[in-house]
């Protein structure tokens, strides 16, 4: 251990820290400004250079945000209900279907398994925006346009969740499953009462990835009725005036509020995420 420390020169350490500080500053500056601008009174928003910290914090921006929203035809509560509904149903659906499929893909050998695994890995490449045009045709044919199901149902098959769960379950001890089988448990029973309780880190990770993706979806691509849309859509219309700095405070307040749910989930499940991602590797 002592030897290892000696290997590292002080100059190198300082250089690394300077680099880390610079890149860190660059990546986290927007986050800092979002937080501080949200609490800045109007006069400080226009100050130059823009103060990083707030001198006399105010909740004016949040109050103005609520006032702005109440002037809209659609009440704020509607967007919140839509966002929560879409995010929760998509995430739970993805969790249920992906974990159920991940168990046999990880632990059974059956004809067609290799093909499915190959397709899933390949589809990790294709984000929803890449397949958007043909997906639009499918969703239109199914009569789902203008409904929230157009956002929810495609989320059920988010391949990243399945991929991570499968890799995690592969590492579970076979003897545990064998013991349950000897006790007469069926495969579904094994999935529900042996596999699932033992891969909690994996499903927490799936939840954070699925939730973060759908929570940031405004629904604009498949939904044209304003009353069906989600929170980020409201944010874009509130912030529409922010190409001039006029609404910088209000849009910062809105961004901050929207960040809170995924940030909380991420911070609470961070160690699970790390544990799961260590199994994310592609062997071949």
């Amino acid at each position: 251990m002592l030897k290892k420390k000696l290997n590292r020169s002080i100059g190198g350490t300082i250089a690394l820290f300077v680099l880390l500080a610079l890149v860190g500053l660059y990546t986290s500056l927007p986050l800092f400004y979002t937080v501080s601008n949200a609490f800045k009174p109007l006069d400080q928003l226009y100050k130059f250079p823009p103060p990083l910290f707030v001198a006399n914090p105010t909740t004016d921006n949040f109050i103005e945000l609520i006032q702005l929203c109440s002037e809209y035809r659609i009440p704020l509560s509607r967007y919140i209900v839509n966002s929560v509904f879409v995010s929760v149903v998509s995430t739970l659906g993805n969790l249920a279907l992906a974990s159920m499929a991940a168990y046999p893909l990880a632990k059974h050998t059956f004809p067609g398994k290799k093909l499915i695994q190959k397709m899933v890995v390949m589809s990790l490449l294709f984000t929803s925006v890449v397949t958007y045009i043909p997906q639009y045709v499918v969703i239109a044919k199914m009569g789902l346009l203008n409904t929230q199901w157009s956002v929810i149902l495609p989320m059920f098959m988010m391949p990243l969740g399945l991929y991570l769960m499968q890799n995690f379950i592969m590492l579970l001890n076979d003897s545990m499953l064998e013991a349950a089988r000897i006790d007469g448990a069926g495969e579904f029973r094994i999935y529900a009462s042996v596999v699932m309780p033992n891969c909690k880190p994996a499903w927490l990770t799936l939840i954070i990835f699925a939730f973060q993706q759908v929570w940031n979806n405004n629904g604009n691509l498949y939904i044209y009725k304003e009353a069906q849309k989600m929170l980020p859509a409201l944010l874009s219309s509130v912030a529409a005036g922010s190409s001039s700095v006029a609404r910088a405070g209000v849009s910062a307040a809105a961004s901050l509020l929207i960040l809170i749910p995924p940030a909380l989930i991420f911070l609470l499940s961070q160690s699970s995420v790390v544990e799961t991602m260590s199994t994310s590797g592609m062997k071949d």
């Binding site: 986050l31 922010s242 929207i258 991420f266």
Partner: peptide, 29 residues
């Protein structure tokens, strides 16, 4: 640190802050 670096991915809405920095009028940072 993980949270700070990963925050842009957590909420893609944070990019609105860039409009404040690169705003086209004389008040943009």
């Amino acid at each position: 640190l993980t949270f700070l670096f990963y925050a842009p991915a957590l909420s893609s809405n944070l990019y609105f802050m860039w409009t404040y920095i690169f705003s086209g009028d004389a008040y943009g940072i």
